[in-house]
């Protein structure tokens, strides 16, 4: 007889009293005070993420402005010499910018065809077990710390390139480009592969239905449909390459001159900051100049990421 043993289920005969009775005081305390505090923390965390981006930008801007009070912005942006410890010092960012652009272009020319090609292979050609092995290998590559690749660049790749191209030193742009291409591959492969496999099955079936081969379907239907995602992959790959520090610091020869080819030593934006920060005096123009370089870097990667995000959004639609 369930009706008679109902005292354990809170009776609703006296609703007003049971409100207070069933809600044990601990629970009421938690709901009234504990939960608002937790929800406040949650909101604050969300705010903090935005604050961090702002702060990063703000600190870079603040210290950059300290430079521009002493050293004209125009000469920084268009100056063709980076001579921070000569007298008077020159902080022209052009050589560093060109260094970054050269190395990045070199890397992209190598890694985009390789990355997209292997993404096509992994997504469309490889049988399932091979696919898993390949994806794990790409993940392994993604997790190799850049300093390790830089080390291998110094002791192995640079000498090989020097001998191959008969250079005076193997520490040059090309070494950097090759290693950076290698490092950007996981980003390009995984995002391109996502883009390829998210092309609706119906597209493929329609093409097969018309008698197209798998290759024709892939080349004429799937690849164009995935183009937004693949462009996003390329942009994110570029972002990765532009921002990479240790490899270029270790293998590109660190010559802050306007490069004429990838076969000579050069110096990127990132490597300049990493290489010179330790030797500057806090509050000197040189010190502030490095923040200005950081600001340029921030602006470049910010733009690249915005564009990539735009492509990704379009891909999702």
């Amino acid at each position: 007889m369930p009706n008679n043993s109902s005292e354990s289920i809170a009776s609703h005969a006296e609703p007003r009293r049971s409100e207070a009775g069933m809600l044990a005081s601990v629970t009421r305390w938690r709901r009234k005070i504990g939960e608002p505090i937790i929800e406040l923390c949650i909101r604050l965390s969300g705010i903090l993420v935005v604050v961090f981006v702002f702060l990063i930008f703000l600190f870079l801007l603040r210290d950059s402005l300290s430079l521009f009070r002493q050293y004209p912005l125009r000469r920084f942006l268009f100056g063709t010499a980076w001579l921070p410890i000569s007298e008077p010092p020159q902080f022209g960012v052009v050589p560093l910018l060109l260094g970054s652009i050269y190395v990045t272009l070199g890397a992209i020319v190598i890694c985009v065809p390789l990355g997209v090609g292997s993404a096509m292979f992994i997504a469309e050609v490889a049988p399932k077990h091979l696919k898993n092995v390949l994806k794990s290998l790409v993940e392994i590559l993604a997790s190799i710390p850049s300093v390790v690749l830089g080390f291998l660049g110094i002791i192995w790749l640079a000498p090989v390139l020097r001998n191959t191209f008969h250079l005076s030193t193997g520490m040059c742009g090309l070494t950097g480009s090759l290693l950076l291409a290698f490092m950007a591959l996981p980003t390009i492969i995984s995002i391109s592969e996502d883009a390829l496999i998210s092309v609706p099955r119906t597209y493929r079936e329609a093409a097969f239905g018309l008698g197209a081969t798998r290759w024709q379907t892939l080349w004429r239907i799937v690849l164009p449909s995935a183009s937004s995602g693949i462009l996003a992959a390329v942009m994110l790959g570029i972002g990765r390459v532009v921002g990479e520090t240790m490899v270029v610091l270790m293998v590109t020869g660190n010559a802050p001159v306007i490069p004429r080819s990838l076969l000579q030593p050069l110096r990127t934006l990132t490597a300049t900051i990493a290489g010179e920060m330790g030797e500057t005096v806090g509050g000197s123009d040189h010190y502030y100049a490095l923040f200005a370089v950081g600001l340029v870097l921030f602006a470049i990667t910010f733009t690249i990421n915005l564009v990539a995000d735009l492509f990704l959004r379009r891909a999702r639609k």
């Binding site: 043993s5 354990s8 289920i9 809600l23």
Partner: peptide, 19 residues
């Protein structure tokens, strides 16, 4: 709703399942 006592919980569960 704040019931922590194991026995009360067990009784409530049994009662509810019976009903």
């Amino acid at each position: 709703h704040g019931v922590t006592n194991k026995e009360t919980l067990a009784r409530t569960v049994e009662e509810a399942l019976k009903r």
